[in-house]
Design a protein around this nucleic acid. Structure first.
Lengths: 159, 159
DNA sequence: GCCAAAATCACCCGAAAGCATGACGACAGA
DNA sequence: TCTGTCGTCATGCTTTCGGGTGATTTTGGC
């Protein structure tokens, strides 16, 4: 994706050089500024349009083609794996528990009611968990939690 | 669609005129050609990028992604299932796309930046998607989206 | 060309979430 | 006993979300 920006820059540089050379060779021509200006404008407009299309080109209608593989992949000791990951990140059991409820789509207030603690406590646990996960939002925390294998598909904590 | 081309032309014309005026007023400055050339290149590049993005807006490139799925979990043709589910709920492709980005943990602002639309637009799409899903929070929407098979584990829209 | 659906954008306002900070008790281990 | 961690709670503040409403524009089908 950045490749296109790079190409843009390179082509732009080459064009600038070329135009500069042209300038020195044909500067004697009348109205040269207009010609060069027009050329520059044209080329950079085209380049810009190209880059714009490239840049935005991944407007995708993703078709998911599933590759079926045998089960038994998920066999490993899920518990210890997640346990170690949890330890590695320094996330406490309580934080993970709350993270699980967050993943299930509950609000802080609902979580507080469910666990019989105050909403502020829930927020504190959330904040600490987010910090340890490197997340700034609860949705991001959920996503990271699942990537790290801390949460299952149902939002249930794995560990 | 044509409107953007028109705007492009108009703005371009105005800019050319402005630069031409500048040329006559400040031509005495040394290295003016480089400055004007750079300005022209910059402005037209920006304009071009803008036009490219606008022009490319709706076109969708079909991307086929292969996903490894354990055989036991897989149920039927994922594509058609999700497509029909999406239709059943009345969720538009755009809404699903934004839902996917929400699932990836992005904020409305980040989504807006990624899709080159305003934050308000993202919020509108979100609200409609939430309403159709019966969700009151984005975390809940993500959870429901996954339950309905609209979103994959990575937050990628399925369909 | 016309119509309906979809997409875009704006504005306001209240609620929820998040951040920083501090504090206090329980409890395990050194 | 001292220390560190954990869980709990609070307060104040800023940001983000979400709902409501209305509007324009684009697009695709007829």
């Amino acid at each position: 994706m950045k490749r296109h920006v790079l190409i843009f820059g390179l082509v732009g540089g080459v064009l600038v050089t070329l135009l500069k050379l042209m300038e020195y060779r044909f500067l004697v021509i009348e109205h040269s500024f207009e010609i060069y200006g027009g050329l520059i404008a044209l080329t950079f407009a085209v380049l810009g349009i190209w880059l714009g299309i490239r840049l935005n080109g991944r407007r995708q209608a993703v078709i998911v083609k599933e590759v079926v593989v045998p089960v038994a992949i998920r066999g490993g000791d899920s518990f210890t794996v997640n346990e170690s990951k949890r330890d590695e990140l320094g996330i406490t059991p309580r934080e993970l528990e709350i993270l699980g409820l967050v993943a299930m789509g509950l609000s802080n207030r609902e979580i507080a009611g469910k666990l019989f603690v105050s909403e502020n406590t829930v927020k504190t646990h959330c904040s600490r968990a987010f910090e340890k996960l490197g997340a700034r939002r609860r949705t991001q925390a959920v996503q990271l939690g699942k990537e790290f294998g801390l949460l299952g598909e149902t939002g249930r904590p794995n560990g």
